[in-house]
Amino acid sequence: MYGAITAVKDLALTVRQGEFLTILGPSGSGKTTALMLLAGFISPSEGDILIAGRSVAAVPSYRRDQGIVFQSYALFPHLTVRRNLEFPLEMRGIKASERANRVDSILERVHLKDFGGRMPSQLSGGQQQRVALARALIADPPILLLDEPLGALDRNLREQMQGEIKSLHKEFGITTVCVTHDQEEALTLSDRIVVMRGGVIEQVDTPEALYDRPATLFVANFLGEANLLEKTVYEIEAERSRHAGTVAMIRPERLRISVPGATRSTEADQRESAIGTVTDMIYAGPLRKYHVEVGSRLLVVREHVASGQQVFSPGDQVRLDWLRSDIRFVTP
């Protein structure tokens, strides 16, 4: 708690050995507080924290033997890259010869073999991130904590570093807990994702399960886009009655857009359709996104760009088709 404010409530979570677990959520969801509790920077007002069956709730951060990477990298600006990497080894009393060998090995692994003599200010953002990762891993800690590790990088560097982090995790097999608000980053890196909202866990599952089978409308909207299907669009009342208290939704890429008179596919008996009007078309390189007004609802359609594909413009009347099996029912 922070004064009268409860940052996380009833947080019960088990991290499996060797997995990459991401805590995902918007600002104020409690994700950073959860990581700070695990790191030992703050103490829980109640409950316990166990690592390998041992309580560490009262153990200070510097005695938890964890590697931590911050969004700001937190490199020592007055020390060279090599000295930054040696520091955690010195704190553990490791001999100079072994320190040198470990530093050489980790520098080569993160593709910075010739950068040991440079100062942090002489490195690019991506290179600084690699040094921060190397420093967190060099002492072979049982747990690696990542706090918005790629938030300071531009898109291209972020995608490159996602691959690097995934490769390092696979190589070292280290139990990793990452905090981020970036959905794509969470989906790319994680074995499991914890979605938090208002200090509580909304859902925990694999990236594919969370995206394809969200439990709540919040999860559906936070991990992508969700089209709500009103009664005017979705008429199968038998399906609705089996999911009382829920709303029907479908992902934009599951909708097919065509002219109203287009030939239906062979599984037409498994499909639903609706007629609507295009209100907007957004071209985004490999994708086109359409906004289609159907009744009182605005639906989003996302399709991959392909040669010979018909392109619709605002004002065009279109038909939307979807498989009944692609509809998901979520709690509001």
Rank of each mutant, 00 (worst) to 15 (best):
M1P: 11
M1Y: 05
Y2S: 11
L11P: 10
R16P: 00
E19V: 04
E19S: 08
L21N: 00
A39E: 07
G40D: 06
S45Y: 04
G47S: 07
L50V: 07
A52T: 04
R54M: 11
R54C: 05
P60G: 02
Q66K: 02
Q71M: 09
S72R: 06
Y73I: 06
A74V: 12
R83V: 09
N84A: 03
N84D: 01
L89P: 11
M91Q: 13
G93D: 03
I94M: 13
V103M: 12
I106T: 04
K113Q: 15
F115R: 14
G117W: 11
M119V: 06
M119S: 13
Q122G: 08
L123H: 10
G125H: 12
G125E: 08
G126D: 12
L133R: 00
L133N: 00
A136R: 13
L145M: 03
L146P: 07
D147G: 04
L150W: 08
L153Y: 13
L157C: 11
Q160I: 04
M161G: 14
I165V: 15
H169Y: 09
E171A: 15
F172M: 02
I174H: 05
V177G: 07
Q183N: 01
E184M: 02
E184T: 12
E185H: 09
A186W: 13
L187R: 02
L187P: 01
V194G: 00
V195A: 00
M196E: 04
M196T: 12
R197A: 06
V200N: 01
Q203E: 10
A209M: 12
A209W: 09
A209N: 14
D212M: 09
F218C: 06
F218T: 09
G224L: 09
E225S: 11
L229G: 04
K231Y: 06
T232A: 11
E237N: 10
R240K: 13
H243C: 05
A244G: 09
A244K: 14
T246L: 07
V247P: 01
I250C: 06
E253V: 07
I257S: 05
S258Y: 01
V259L: 14
P260L: 02
A262D: 01
A262Q: 07
A262F: 03
T266E: 14
T266R: 13
E267K: 09
T279P: 11
T279S: 14
D280T: 10
M281I: 14
A284Y: 05
L299G: 01
F312C: 10
D316K: 02
V318L: 01
L320E: 09
W322E: 07
L323A: 13
D326P: 12
R328G: 02
F329Y: 15
